[in-house]
Design a protein around this nucleic acid. Structure first.
Lengths: 176, 176
DNA sequence: ATTGCACTAACAAACGTTAGTTAGAAACAT
DNA sequence: ATGTTTCTAACTAACGTTTGTTAGTGCAAT
């Protein structure tokens, strides 16, 4: 599905990947879209619970941001195919599911924004447009999916560290 | 095509969007893939010529990076649909076209890396992993396509300015 | 008269999905 | 323990659509 997109992946492809016939899939799911729904919402909820855990353990904003980034990268790289679907193929959901999905995404972004806000209150982050900043940060994180290779030289944790440093540099109040 | 993906967009859809019948398209193109090729390669070349122009006018690295970012954002936002195809749908190209396309992408990234390199030589950028840095920067830029609304409050130039500042902060040598 | 650009009609292949069947495992009463 | 029923998870066959594409036709401008 990562390579051919939702529309380009037939039930017969999916079935073949599970050593089945296409019709047999309907014993487990009720439609093609349900597979997409399950994938998208499963991932969305995993991301949300991960960041909520981070925000519950109360450290300072800088540390929390690092933890959130690390959790995000870990989640993304744990299953690259599912992550790709989560990031790109949710457009193919029906209208009702799509708006539910967007709510979950907004929730996640909101949690990220909360970290930036407390960073500003602590006086360590510059008070830029938070919404814009979070979108930019998540962009940088999410793109990892499209070039990360598990067998490559960079581990997920290594990537997370680098990104965290880069982002913190970008956010920090200039101390000139 | 942005909404339904390459496989989900039929020749009849495309034709309808041009007030034509599907068969009539074959008077202008030889196959569905050729449309994709034209789009992808057209965009790729536009990006490449844009950054080469920036690199020809010889300013310092910091300014050149700003100009490159601005050019990139301008190109992206000029045609959001084409940009989406350029960024995501090139996977559907055949194997020969796909590797040519990747070469163009590499070229572009190479030009970006060149800017970072001269920034390091000028002593204003910290010497991090350039390849990684460029990927992260382009990630942040490219994601703009997925949330930018032309009728929204943020102009393309405004976005480019903000991003440039964010990126420069992230790259600059810490002057502690 | 030729060419350019659109059309209609049709093609085989692939699509998501439904219906009906079958082999084996689980649960049950005798 | 055995025989009977129910459930599970796979199957084959087929359905009506839609897909990308080709062939042949007609009209308008050069």
């Amino acid at each position: 599905m990562k390579e051919n997109g939702y529309a380009g992946t037939s039930m017969r492809h999916i079935a073949a990947a599970m050593n089945m016939e296409a019709a047999s899939l309907y014993h487990h799911v009720s439609s093609k879209e349900e597979i997409l729904r399950e994938l998208c919402f499963g991932m969305a909820q995993a991301f949300n619970t991960a960041i909520e855990e981070v925000n519950d353990i109360y450290f300072n904003a800088e540390e929390r941001l690092g933890m959130a980034v690390r959790a995000h990268i870990r989640q993304l790289t744990a299953n690259l195919d599912a992550s790709h679907v989560f990031l790109h193929e949710w457009r193919h959901l029906g209208i009702p599911a799509q708006s539910d999905f967007k709510k979950l995404r907004d929730n996640y972004e909101q949690s990220f924004r909360a970290i930036l806000k407390s960073g500003e209150e602590e006086g360590v982050f510059s008070d830029a447009d938070r919404k814009f900043a979070v979108l930019t940060i998540l962009s940088a994180l999410n793109w990892v999916v499209s070039w990360y290779k598990p067998e490559g030289e960079m581990s997920a944790e290594h990537i997370a560290d680098r990104l965290t440093r880069f982002i913190l540099n970008g956010l920090k109040k200039e101390t000139t």
